[in-house]
Nucleic acid binder design. Structure first.
Length: 255
DNA sequence: AATTAAACCAACCGCATTCTG
DNA sequence: GCAGAATGCGGTTGGTTTAAT
């Protein structure tokens, strides 16, 4: 199957985005959406390839991005989800509103992995000393965050995010469908993430790790996109239970 | 104060999957 | 059903910042 080159390199800018480029991209997407990433840079007057624009938007400029350090609860959730899903970062991100796959991936490699290694080696070194927040974040982003970032524990999930974080596998469709319907069912309904959500979610994950849910998840090999039908049912049960616990069954019933 | 090492994260690359004519 | 185009995803890299010496 022939593949188009990533982008025509000629004349296209690479490397870090400037605040001006960010503003241009945000303004264009707010006005016209992003139905066609390929055509977007031209339409917006950006000397970037569509791929680059998409990445910048998804990982950085999207209004519902939650920035800042990961909480312990979030890290624990990532550990649990990674245990179940493997390196399927987009699937994990779909379950962590406001976080991107890239961000989660980074945190995993730079933070959590070491924490776990420390645990398994019995050194109990704990997390490395936290460094101060980065300062080189584009100013436009700071503005966006100030305007759009709500309380840390309450992150609105827009259809935008659900679409961009949803992936193409059967398993992901389950979650993304749930999220899509959940977020679109009511514009005023925000997906509340609070302590009880985390504790319930993690409790579910732990419970199912000793039962069928975990087995189903494990059998869903990252290298194989075709889980067996039985494990697929188990997995479905697992997620149904999970979202029931999360109080999101209203949207599930619409599927 | 200067240098080095480690940590961090944005962005790129290439492959896989999905969409479209 | 097929081929090409478009999009999404995961792995990796390179640049920047900070801590340690």
């Amino acid at each position: 199957m022939g593949r188009a080159p990533c982008c025509e390199k000629m004349g296209l800018k690479r490397g870090p985005w400037t605040a001006e480029e960010d503003r241009t991209l945000v303004a264009h997407i707010e006005q016209h959406g992003h139905s066609n990433w390929r055509a977007l840079p031209k339409q917006a007057g950006l000397l970037r390839c569509g791929k680059s624009c998409r990445l910048r938007w998804i990982n950085y400029l999207r209004p519902d991005i939650k920035r800042g350090n990961f909480t312990r609860e979030e890290e624990d959730a990532i550990i649990q989800l990674h245990d179940m899903l493997g390196n399927r970062w987009s699937a994990i991100a779909a379950r962590l509103p406001g976080r991107t796959d890239n961000e989660i991936k980074n945190v995993w490699h730079t933070h959590i992995k070491k924490r776990l290694e420390g645990k398994t080696q019995g050194t109990a070194t704990g997390a490395p000393a936290k460094r101060k927040a980065k300062k080189h974040v584009a100013s436009v982003n700071t503005t966006l965050q100030q305007q759009q970032q709500g309380p840390v524990s309450s992150v609105p999930v827009s259809p935008e995010q659900s679409l961009s974080t949803s992936s193409s596998t059967d398993n992901d469709c389950m979650a993304s469908s749930l999220e899509n319907t959940g977020s679109s069912a009511s514009d005023s309904h925000e997906f509340q993430i609070d302590d009880s959500f985390w504790s319930e979610t993690l409790a579910m994950a732990v419970d199912s790790s000793s039962g069928s849910g975990m087995e189903a998840a494990e059998s869903f090999d990252a290298d194989s996109a075709s889980p067996s039908s039985s494990s697929s049912n188990d997995e479905m049960d697992f997620w149904v239970k999970l979202f029931m616990q999360a109080g999101d069954m209203q949207s599930l019933s619409q599927i």
